[in-house]
Nucleic acid binder design. Structure first.
Length: 627
RNA sequence: GCCCUCGUAGCUCAAUUGGAUAGAGCGUCAGCCUCCGAAGUUGAAGGUUACAGGUUCGAUCCCUGUCGAGGGUACCA
């Protein structure tokens, strides 16, 4: 798998060199530590040092009893770079081994990528079945800006892993069975508005949820702002417990609550589907917590009977004591008989093991749930989830992400105490993208000089096309704003940042794609024929070489995304690539170039456009031909 | 109380997980459209990586302490 990229090939060459180094007795290297040393072959921090760099000589020096530079010299002596790299010169600085890709090898790789439907990205050698659990909104609980992280990150990871050649199974684990339904049931029984429900069922359920949550929490500062909630809280001081009782009754199969649940669910499902379809996110499955409900009692019984798990009663509840008697247990049944998050997750895990036989399961969930997943994974390994033979080989990962904060550094809320609804964010994004399309139209020359305002591409776009473009650009801006950050860090929410359309944004890449399209439509070039006819590419200018080198690194970027499940590795690389293209485009003529040079540049433009389009698609972001 | 995470440019964030002179965007300032799309491009200014020690060829990253912020801590998800 590694051999398909320059980095992978070079790592292979270094591996051989290090094995020789060890065999020659310069320094002993065990088979276990070899991969770690080989991984120290990376792209350079600065192009002036070359394209790739190996730093393992410095790490090995002390053990070898040599100066780092001398170890580097010994490695270089044993390094056979074949016809891919220029022979490295002396080590640099304390012992960096710097290498440059040979021009002919780089040109061959670009041509191969131009002709390759996968743009030079080889599929992984050992495909795995990977279940990705993301999305997971609570139904009937209105989605706000914090809820897009799981969806956007999970969707991108699923697409990237699939493109890498894995078999992915996505499951939207809907919260359709938890305590929030107890709130809705209580609200329905105490303060429903039948007319509103008839007019707009999910809006009424959302209103009930918001209202009852305030009443149940009974926080003085919240009640002070909401007279209706305050009145209810005064009248029903025990709402918190009654809500839990409604939940327990639902779980026990109470006919009234069950009937209400069945009445509400179709509306909730439709609402969820509508929002995800607007985000252009789809799932292979959306089983939801309720799907696993019939299995919960059996799971608890199994866990109690299992000698490796030893779930037992404690303070009326049932839990698993993973860290001794003193540490809080992993609770799987409450004292009132209702089941918990943990119970559902364990049942879900067992079901997935049986039906999907995954090699890996990823949970794209808020980092605050870290302790829950630690306990879940530990229990799963003890229990076996119905498949003790396979469980040890299954990788569980909590792909955690940070919280969306307000400008005060606290979890995001508006001044009124409400969160910004997801839909209003999406609407605003599309609206701003629409305005941007007209920003240049009326620009007058300030001093009589004619001014080029870039409206050319929009000529001939009717209103419907413009709306289409605004939708894609606006949605892309929002997704990119989230994906481009390290998923583990909290970030401060800002409309202006999320909806920005200049600088390091999705629009920057979309714009580069539109400029590629512009070249091909203006020049009347048949890119399909071009791809087959190209024999070689020219790398004579710095801009061409820099662009070419980025183009052949697509596979490396995708490989790095998978290592830590970090989509921002891909956004950063795409931004680099688009930046190289913009510099290339600005400095060098394409259509006005002649002969082989013209064909070479056209081929590079075509490949850039395809990779940018593919890369954005893997992030769930669309592109347009004109914008 | 205990545990976890975080503190990087005026603002919002990166940093190939111990590598070379810590990078981007926004904002500010100065250039570039009779030449393939200016949602672009070229450059400038902006840093004691919270603070104090330690480990080593090398520390934003690892260790210790201090200060500050956030989160978790048995029946919410």
């Amino acid at each position: 798998m590694g051999g398909a990229t320059f980095r992978g090939a070079l790592r292979g060459l270094f591996r051989a060199a290090l094995e020789r180094l060890s065999a020659d007795g310069v320094v002993g290297i065990t088979a276990e530590e070899l991969p770690g040393l080989v991984d120290q072959v990376r792209e350079t921090a600065d192009p002036k040092f070359g394209d790739y760099s190996g730093t393992m000589a410095m790490a090995l020096a002390k053990r070898a009893g040599l100066k780092p530079r001398d170890v580097a010299v010994e490695i270089i002596r044993r390094l056979d770079v074949g016809d891919l790299f220029e022979i490295p010169a002396e080590p640099v600085g304390p012992g960096f081994i710097n290498l440059r890709v040979r021009q002919d090898a780089l040109a061959r790789a670009v041509v191969a990528a131009v002709r390759d439907p996968r743009m030079g990205v080889a599929p992984v050698a050992t495909p795995e079945t990977i279940v990705i659990d993301f999305g997971g909104p609570n139904v009937a609980k209105p989605m706000h800006v914090g809820h897009i992280r799981s969806t956007v990150i999970g969707d991108a990871l699923a697409k990237i892993l699939e493109f890498r050649g894995h078999h992915t199974i996505t499951d939207n684990h809907l919260g359709d069975w938890g305590t929030q339904f107890g709130m809705i049931l209580w609200g329905w029984k105490h303060c429903r508005d039948g007319a509103r429900f008839a007019a707009d069922p999910t809006a009424e359920l959302a209103r009930l949820y918001r209202l009852v949550r305030k009443v149940a929490d009974a926080k003085p500062e919240e009640l002070a702002r909401d007279p209706e909630a305050a009145a209810l809280a005064a009248r029903y001081p025990d709402t918190g417990r009654e809500v839990l009782a409604e939940t327990a009754k639902l779980h026990e199969g109470d006919s009234e609550n069950r009937a209400l649940w069945e009445q509400f669910m179709p509306f909730c499902r439709a609402e969820i589907d509508r929002i995800f379809s607007r985000l252009h996110v789809s799932f292979d499955h959306a089983l939801g917590e309720s799907f696993f409900q019939p299995m919960l009692a059996g799971v608890v019984a199994e866990l109690m009977a299992d000698p490796a798990v030893r779930a037992r009663e404690s303070r009326g509840a049932i839990g698993i004591f993973l860290n001794g008697e003193d540490a809080p247990p992993f609770l799987i049944r409450k004292a009132d008989g209702a089941f918990l998050y943990a119970t559902t997750d364990l049942a879900t895990l067992k079901w997935r093991m049986e039906h999907w036989k995954p090699d890996r399961i990823l949970y794209v969930v808020d980092s605050r749930q870290g302790p829950h997943f630690e306990q879940l994974f530990a229990t799963a390994k003890l229990w076996g989830c119905g498949d003790r033979q396979r469980i040890d080989g299954v990788e569980f990962a909590h792909v955690a992400f940070g919280t969306v904060l307000g400008e005060d550094g606290k979890p995001f809320k508006t001044r009124a105490g409400d969160t910004v609804g997801l839909e209003s964010l999406l609407d605003e994004g599309v609206e701003r993208a629409g305005k941007m399309q007209h920003a240049g139209d009326k620009t007058q020359s300030a001093d009589g000089r004619p001014q080029h305002v870039g409206t050319e591409g929009r000529v001939g776009m009717d209103a419907a096309e413009q709306r289409h473009v605004a939708e894609i650009v606006g949605m892309g801006a929002i997704k990119y704003a989230d994906l481009s950050q390290n998923r583990t860090t909290d970030y401060v929410f800002s409309f202006d940042k999320m909806l920005q359309l200049t600088g390091n944004t999705a629009a920057y890449m979309q714009y580069a794609v539109a400029r590629v399209e512009g070249i091909f439509s203006k020049g009347g070039v048949d890119c399909v024929a071009l791809r087959q006819s190209v024999e070689g590419v020219s790398l004579s200018t710095p801009q061409e070489r820099a662009l070419a080198l980025e183009l052949v690194r697509f596979g490396e970027a995708l490989e790095d995304v998978e290592i830590d499940y970090r989509p921002n590795v891909l956004t950063a690389w795409l931004y680099e690539l688009a930046g190289c293209y913009s510099s290339f485009y600005d400095a060098l003529p394409v259509l006005k170039a002649e002969g082989d040079e013209r064909n070479s540049r056209l081929a590079v433009c075509d490949l850039t456009g395809r990779i940018l389009r593919q890369g954005l698609e893997l992030l769930g972001i669309g592109t347009v031909e004109k914008m």
